[in-house]
Design a protein around this nucleic acid. Sequence first.
DNA 1: TTAAAGTACTTTGTAAATCAAAGTTACATA
DNA 2: TATGTAACTTTGATTTACAAAGTACTTTAA
Lengths: 99, 99
Amino acid sequence: MINPIGNLNKIFDSRIRLGVMSILMVNEEVSFNDLKQMLELTDGNLASHLSTLEENGYLKVHKGFVGRKTNTTYSITKAGEKAFKGHLAALENMIRSME
Amino acid sequence: MINPIGNLNKIFDSRIRLGVMSILMVNEEVSFNDLKQMLELTDGNLASHLSTLEENGYLKVHKGFVGRKTNTTYSITKAGEKAFKGHLAALENMIRSME
DNA sequence: TTAAAGTACTTTGTAAATCAAAGTTACATA
DNA sequence: TATGTAACTTTGATTTACAAAGTACTTTAA
């Protein structure tokens, strides 16, 4: 039998990174503050998970303004989309063996 | 918006515990060694994850024999089944928002 | 009858991950 | 001038994960 967890992506073991990705799959661009509120996180915690995702090439950052306030938004990359879909497929496979 | 990761079960953040549970959802009883081989783990690592699951009431242990060799098997409890299904439902909910 | 091997752990020690809180930089508004 | 907001980074503590070694018991092979 093949290891049923071997295809799961380690980056997505974290519930927070999983949450960020699932939000960015739906929404083209989401701001730092929106993510923070949706996921109920402290600044530091969110920032560190975002940088993990960014370092892995799963999302990209846009620094802009809303009026005169700084506004950082995040969006998923092609690689991120692929990785996330791959992870979901692996989860599905793992669970499909249940039938 | 409601926190999309709030309903995920922390016990199942671990890929290994997720793997154990998914195996035990299919198979009525699985031995320590079979789990070890299926998940490709060291004894200690598997044992510690199993005891976490046991402490949470998600699986139960049966100590028996095969021939004259000791043989420990594990099976899922009702609570474990419920928790696992709940986790999967939470994952699905989180992802369903993608459509 | 020693020796080697298997089962199912527990213990030990280290490394990695997680997180809150505080500090930081930069601009904005009162 | 002082307070506020955004988006971090740094710090430090706690938790988690893991491999490796050790343990207790039994079995099988030499």
